[in-house]
Amino acid sequence: MKYSLPTILSTKEGFECLASLAGHTEHLFARRVSVDFSSCEFFDANMAAPLGAILARITDRLNEVELISLSKGIQSVLCQNQFLASYGYPALDDGEQTTLPFQRIPLAEKGLFAEYLGRHLQGKGVPKMSERLERAFQQKIFEVFQNAVTHSESRFGVFVCGQSFPTKKRLELTLADAGIGIRENVRRFFQNDKISSAAAIRWALVGGNTTKQGKEPGGLGLKLLKDFFSLNEGKIQIASRMGCYVFENGKETFSTMSADFPGTVVNFEINTSDPRSYRFTSEPGAKN
């Protein structure tokens, strides 16, 4: 089958279009799937992460995937971030070194993820963040990775990539999994299969809410993420199943998407010129 991919930006519409690709191919087994980029005028580099998650599910059903009719510009962007390397395209040197390459990281490989962040967040042209900002950002990314480990049940691991925009002083980083989505976790927890995706995301963002059962408290990761990006004046987007969440300029919106994204995507846009120190108290030291 041939699927025509439109322009894909880091927006709700972008997530919907990728979710639609998943929906149109979910019944296919051992077929050839041609993703046609001829109508795609622009593709935000970081959206390679959710696209990778969807294509992994398609190939897992023994389908052969090919990406065709990419414009020179899109090909260049997706070769630079190494996304196209698995589809027979040559790797391209990232001349300006603004790319955080596409990589698939198994859930058990937190060391590999740490190595990825260590190598690609520091230097390589990524706009210079203060050490404290970088550390705080890295901590929040690990919170999201750990959320995927604990909740996603993604056999395919986590797909990560990013792009820095030195002149805008912004850095985008996207983590996508091909798991069960936030909705499924919340539905199981409440034993209610009617809870909507947007309501499930809303619940998961409240500090202390966790679907983990047992002796261990939880539910702080996403709340901390929101607090950090509020101070940083950055942006968070979460797309999970049919729910979409955006936090920007202190304002949050929850909405329902027109298609079902099979998994969860978290997209961060960090303000790299943020002068805050993220030092909450003046004295380092011990509790007692």
Binding site: R132, R135, A136, G207, L220, L224, Y278, R279, F280, T281, S282, E283, P284, G285, A286, K287, N288
Partner: peptide, 15 residues
């Protein structure tokens, strides 16, 4: 008791 902790981590632990 907790020691050798940065102020950020201390704040996180309080939460």
């Amino acid at each position: 008791s907790l020691k050798d902790m940065t102020s950020e981590d201390q704040k996180l632990l309080e939460r």
